[in-house]
Design a protein around this nucleic acid. Structure first.
Lengths: 206, 206
DNA sequence: CAGGCGTAGCTAATATAATTAGCTTTATGG
DNA sequence: CCATAAAGCTAATTATATTAGCTACGCCTG
């Protein structure tokens, strides 16, 4: 018989397809093997078991998310950039709910995944640039923005919004809360604006 | 041999213990059976398979979360209540990260779980009472608050905050963003305060 | 107190999945 | 044209869930 001609990427492609079509629980080596027309153990020639396959799918998804956010934020700043970034984040989750849900909940030591996650964080840090927040303030706000984006996306894709109110409007309101909050600064009297310096985008994580 | 004297509650107790100690993936019928000193199939006398067991664990956890939030918010209003509710939410997640992580990501038709989720929502709606928001505005803000709380808890328990900055401070900042945002209202000119009416707490969900 | 019965718990069997070991065969490069 | 690395296969092992059907514990009643 002719060879299937698989590759690691092709296996991940199939895995993503299975994930999209049948959900996270259906992402099994057996299902991926069936889809690629190969016996289950053959997949081990391209991927080191289900764990690695899942991680690769997550890395790809996280990078897609980062790509989309990057594109959305480009050429914008401040409220405009924040709004675009948040919208891009949510739209990715809504368009690919299973991929979004498959992003790991637990700490995972995979460096590729960390790198992809960092890309998302970097975009958020970048879109906050225009606000001239001081050093650690940027981190706190970035964490807040990420939390808001993730929380909303997670709840909505999980079907958490049952009432008639339009979730789009709710999302607008969430963005508004942050925008307005940023305009006013912390409610205690601490300084939060730095006095105009340049910010480098070296490190990562938040 | 003497009988083990199990009950559905006892099985769920054991399941929670396994979950707490060894994480979500270790929550198997085999592990619960071992812990209760019974053969695996015997568990089916008390629980209808792994699916139902997981759902029961989730229901219990969600109710614990609701209990804690309710206690925290009692006797407070406005910013004070909001802050207390958010803190209670996060502290539950941090104290029981595995239980929190085991709350379902996907839509689940379990009415008990829906009821438990509603309790959380009701607390959030209640703590927003003092702000006198108009009807649908309450819903949008409640969703925003829940998204912020969930997102932050999810990210932190997943080890998403790697930098030196204290996550507690970040959380304060997140609460601040919301508090300030609420003080100012939507950035468009729409009205958001109702003119003093009573709010009933009948329905649920958001 | 004896009998009876409901049910908790057991063993055995089946199905699905992951994973490992080791063989076969396809391509390809010398 | 053949040697070899890698792609794929089959077979076997392990872990898990789940179903079926048996047994015996313990309570409730007569």
């Amino acid at each position: 018989m002719p060879r299937a001609g698989l590759s690691t990427d092709a296996v991940v492609d199939a895995a993503v397809a299975v994930l999209d079509e049948h959900g996270p629980d259906a992402l099994t080596l057996a299902a991926v093997a069936a889809r690629t027309g190969v016996a289950t153990p053959s997949l081990y020639k391209h991927v080191d078991g289900l764990g690695e396959l899942r991680r690769r799918v997550a890395v790809r998804s996280m990078n897609e998310l980062a790509d989309r956010m990057t594109a959305a934020v480009l050429g914008r700043s401040r409220d405009d950039a924040l709004r675009a970034g948040m919208m891009a984040y949510r739209s990715y989750a809504l368009e690919h709910p299973n991929r979004y849900a498959a992003l790991p909940q637990h700490p995972v030591p995979d460096p590729d995944l960390a790198a992809a996650g960092d890309r998302v964080v970097q975009v958020i840090l970048a879109l906050l640039r225009g606000y001239d927040l001081e050093d650690s303030e940027v981190i706190h706000v970035a964490r807040s923005v990420r939390a808001a984006a993730h929380g909303f996306a997670a709840l909505q894709t999980a079907g958490g919004f049952q009432l008639a109110e339009d979730p789009d409007t709710s999302h607008e309101r969430l963005i508004d809360l942050i925008v307005v909050g940023l305009r006013e600064g912390p409610s205690d009297g601490s300084p939060h604006h730095r006095d105009q310096t340049v910010q480098d985008g070296s490190v990562a994580h938040t």
